[in-house]
Structure formats: C-alpha cells, structure tokens
Design a protein around this nucleic acid. Structure first.
Length: 274
DNA sequence: CGCCAGGACGCCC
DNA sequence: GGGCGTCATGGC
C-alpha cells in the first residue's frame, strides 16, 4: 500500500479503485456523496467509525481526519486494499463479456462489510429499488442516533414500532432477524466460518432470507467471494451471455465477477435488454 | 397513471 | 421440484 500521512489525513495512491464505482454500485447503501466531480467526496461509516474520503484524481485518494492506525486496522481492510484486483481482472478478461465489464468500471472493489448490517440491508433490499433501500436504511440509522443499530439495540422493536421505516412487508422480516440473532439461534460469526452450503441453510432460517439475500450476506458481509447473488439484472446477464453458466476460471471469485457484471449491465446502456 | 425494483413466502400441482 | 399470486412502498 502506497500512502503518506499529512496533517490528520491519509494520502493514498491506490490502483484499481474508484469511489463512485465502489461506493455506489449496489453493494453498500450508506455512503453519501457530499461533493460531486473532482475531488468527489463521500461520507460514511463502518463499525461506528466515521470517514470522509475524497478522490482527487484517478487512483489518488484522501482519507480525511483519520489516524494511521485506523487506516491500517479498519479502512484498508474495509476497502480491501490488500487484494490485487488487477490480477483478478486479468483472469476474468479471458471471457469477452467480463472483459468489457471490467474495462467499463475498472475501479470496483468488494467492500468487506459488517455481516449484521448486510443482513438487515439486504432483507430490506428485496423487491425494492436502490434509492428507496437507501432511504429506509437512512431512516433506521437516524432513529438510532446516526449509527447502524445492533441486534441488541433493536431488541425492543416490533413490526409496528418500525412503521417509521416505511419498509412495508419487510418489517416483520427485520424483527425475525433481530430475534434470531439475539437469541443465538442464528450466529453470524459462526456462519462466516461454515461451509458455503451450511452457511446458506443457517441464514435461511430467518424469515425473509431466501437464496438471493443469503448470497448477498455471504458475499458482502462475510467476504465469501464464491457466493453469487442473482437478482433480475444478473438473471438477464446469465440468460444473454452465460446460458451454460459462468466459465470455470471464475468460480472461486464469482461474486466479484458478479459485481462487475451487475454494474455494467445496469448502468452502461451498452447492452440492450428486451 | 402503470410498471418496476439487488425477492420471499405460501399455496397449488 | 416448478409456477403463480401476493406482499408495501415509492422511484421513475
């Protein structure tokens, strides 16, 4: 990692990284763009640590008002800065469609998020659109002093008490997740170490967690890169380009490939969808 | 206004 | 196992 400390800021030079592509590609919902254009600036948080981060030019970043220890112990891991994405993209690019997707947004990284926050966020995401998902999560955090509440924080909530979220039928699912995590019936830390198959089954014990949400929790919240969430967009990609499945050389990192494909198909407009 | 959204559930066959 | 209606809400 190439960085230096200046005043209370970390100046970071990092290839294969772009803030817009990473923070606004549907994997995380709580980063806010507080300044557009260069230097674009995002504000967000992870594990009760707040961060404001700017991108001043391609591959150049400023992490504002943070310490070297927080950078090394928290943010470098969160942004997955120790993974060589260029190597990954080289492998993916043996495939024509993936080559285009990787080139279209070559600064996507898979964030290493918190499993609990991912669980609730992707329960909320079902049959929903990204702007509204962000709104619901924003209302949830505002209700808890601007932080993402823990399962324990939410132990008193009922579907009715969550009316302020305006999350519709998802409120009862949120409450089931709260209850099962608090009781220990579902243990996210244990699940993160299980085989993929067992982990999926454990997560699906929660009402409102099906195949897609379970894959998202595994991929975004537990960094299981072989997990492969299939939403309506990826379904279109699969039907159009991979009727026989993804190439074998992708499998161990199918989730990351999925991230490039999702962003590409959803925002590039280069692929027509009937 | 109607169609859709990073789906899951319950029911039916 | 697969197919289909239903579930709230609001972005577009």
């Amino acid at each position: 990692m190439d960085y230096e400390i200046k005043n209370n800021n970390i100046l970071l030079s990092q290839s294969d990284f772009d803030l817009d592509e990473t923070l606004d590609c549907g994997q995380a919902f709580r980063w806010k763009k507080i300044k557009s254009d260069f230097p674009c600036t995002y504000s967000g948080s992870f594990l009760n640590k707040k961060l404001t981060v700017s991108q001043t030019e391609k591959n150049v970043f400023v992490l504002h008002d943070t310490s070297e220890s927080d950078f090394l112990n928290i943010w470098a891991d969160y942004f997955d800065l120790n993974t060589d994405y260029s190597e990954l993209k080289k492998i993916f690019s043996q495939d024509e469609t993936l080559a285009k997707a990787c080139k279209y947004a070559d600064g996507i990284r898979l964030l290493r998020q918190n499993s609990w926050e991912c669980l609730i966020s992707f329960i909320i995401s079902q049959n929903n659109n990204i702007p509204r998902i962000k709104g619901i999560i924003d209302r949830l955090c505002s209700h808890y002093d601007g932080r993402f509440p823990s399962a324990n924080d939410m132990s008193w909530e009922t579907p009715e008490s969550l009316d302020y979220l305006r999350s519709g039928f998802r409120a009862k699912y949120i409450c089931d997740a709260v209850q099962k995590v608090n009781s220990g019936e579902v243990n996210l830390d244990k699940i993160s170490g299980m085989s993929l198959e067992s982990a999926r089954a454990e997560l699906k014990k929660i009402k409102g967690v099906g195949t897609k949400v379970a894959e998202c929790v595994l991929l975004y919240g537990m960094h299981r890169t072989e997990a492969f969430p299939v939403d309506v967009w990826i379904k279109r990609v699969m039907e159009k380009f991979y009727p026989d499945g993804l190439p074998d050389f992708v499998q161990n990192y199918a989730g990351i490939a999925q991230q490039y494909l999702f962003h590409y198909i959803r925002t590039s407009g280069e692929v027509s969808i009937q």
